[in-house]
C-alpha cells in the first residue's frame, strides 16, 4: 500500500519551510537565474548568428551554418556533457569555481549555463533571421538612402521592428528554457530538479517530491505566461494590431 505523505509534500511545497532547505532554495534561485542568463546570452548569440547567416561573406555564413547545424542536430544533454566533462579532461578549460563575495558559481553551473546559451543561440538564430526577413526590404533601402550604414540601419531600423516579430516565439523559447535547465542535473549543477533528486536520495519519497518539483516548474512557467501576454498586448496596442491570445488560451493551447 502507498500512503501519500502529506507532511513531506507540504514541507517541500510551502516556501517558508521548503526554502530552509539550501538545496531547494539554491535550486530555485539557480533555475531562475540560469534561465534568464542563458536566454539572454542565447538571444545575443542568435542575433550574431542570424546576421552572420545573412552576411555577404561566405566563410562567415559557413561558420554560422555549421554552428546551427551542430547545436540543433545533437541533444543538449550530449552538448552539456561534452562541454563540461569533455573539455575538462582535455585541460583546454576545466571550469574552475568563481567566487563573488558570498556567492560561489561552480564550474558545473558555468558549463551548464554556457551549454544552454549556446544551444539556445542556434534556435534563436533561426527565429531572429525569420524576424529580420519579415521586415520589408524597403526599410533597409530607406535607411540607406538617408545615409545609414548597414550596421546602423540594422541597429536603428531593422532590429527594433524585427524585435516585435521575435517576441512571441522568444517568449515560448524562454518557457522551454526554464524547463530545460533541469538537464543541468546531469552535470550536478544543483538546480531545482537536481535538488529534488538529492532530497529523494535521502528520504525516498519520489511521488511527493517530484510532484512538488512539478508544481514549482508549473508556477514558474505560469507566471511567465502571464508576463508574456502582458508584453505582447502592450506591443500590439502601440502598433494598433489585435490583442494576443489571453493567458488561459495560451496555457491550454499547447504551445
Amino acid at each position: 500500500m502507498f500512503y501519500f505523505d502529506w507532511a513531506v509534500f507540504w514541507q517541500y511545497l510551502y516556501p517558508p519551510t521548503a526554502f530552509q532547505n539550501p538545496l531547494v532554495r539554491n535550486g530555485f534561485i539557480l533555475t531562475v537565474a540560469a534561465s534568464v542568463i542563458a536566454q539572454a546570452l542565447g538571444v545575443l548569440l542568435g542575433v550574431i548568428a542570424a546576421l552572420a547567416k545573412m552576411s555577404k561573406l561566405a566563410p562567415l555564413r559557413g561558420l554560422a551554418d555549421l554552428y546551427v547545424w551542430y547545436f540543433r542536430g545533437t541533444p543538449l544533454l550530449v552538448q552539456m556533457s561534452f562541454l563540461y566533462f569533455g573539455l575538462g579532461v582535455t585541460h583546454i578549460y576545466g571550469f574552475p569555481d568563481f567566487h563573488f563575495g558570498i556567492v560561489t558559481v561552480t564550474g558545473a553551473v558555468q558549463a551548464g549555463i554556457l551549454a544552454l546559451a549556446i544551444n539556445e543561440g542556434a534556435y534563436m538564430a533561426e527565429i531572429v533571421r525569420a524576424g529580420i526577413e519579415a521586415i520589408d526590404p524597403g526599410q533597409m533601402e530607406a535607411a540607406k538612402s538617408l545615409g545609414m550604414t548597414y550596421g546602423k540601419a540594422m541597429q536603428r531600423i531593422i532590429l527594433p521592428q524585427a524585435a516585435k516579430v521575435i517576441v512571441p516565439p522568444l517568449g515560448n523559447e524562454f518557457n522551454n528554457m526554464m524547463k530545460t535547465t533541469s538537464l543541468m542535473a546531469v552535470i550536478s549543477a544543483g538546480e531545482l530538479y537536481y535538488a529534488f533528486t538529492q532530497i529523494n536520495a535521502r528520504i525516498f519519497a519520489p511521488f511527493e517530491l517530484f510532484l512538488v518539483a512539478s508544481i514549482y516548474y508549473l508556477f514558474l512557467t505560469t507566471v511567465w505566461s502571464l508576463i508574456q501576454s502582458r508584453i505582447e498586448a502592450s506591443l500590439g496596442e502601440r502598433k494598433g494590431i489585435e490583442r494576443a491570445p489571453g493567458m488561459l488560451q495560451r496555457l491550454f493551447a499547447g504551445h
Binding site: D136, G138, Q139, E141, A142, A143, S145, I157, P160, Q161, K164, K239
Partner: peptide, 13 residues
C-alpha cells in the same frame, strides 16, 4: 541625396 519611394517606406516603429 534625398530619395522618396513609391511605397513611402516610413519607419513604422
Amino acid at each position: 541625396i534625398g530619395m522618396v519611394f513609391q511605397r513611402f517606406n516610413l519607419f513604422p516603429h
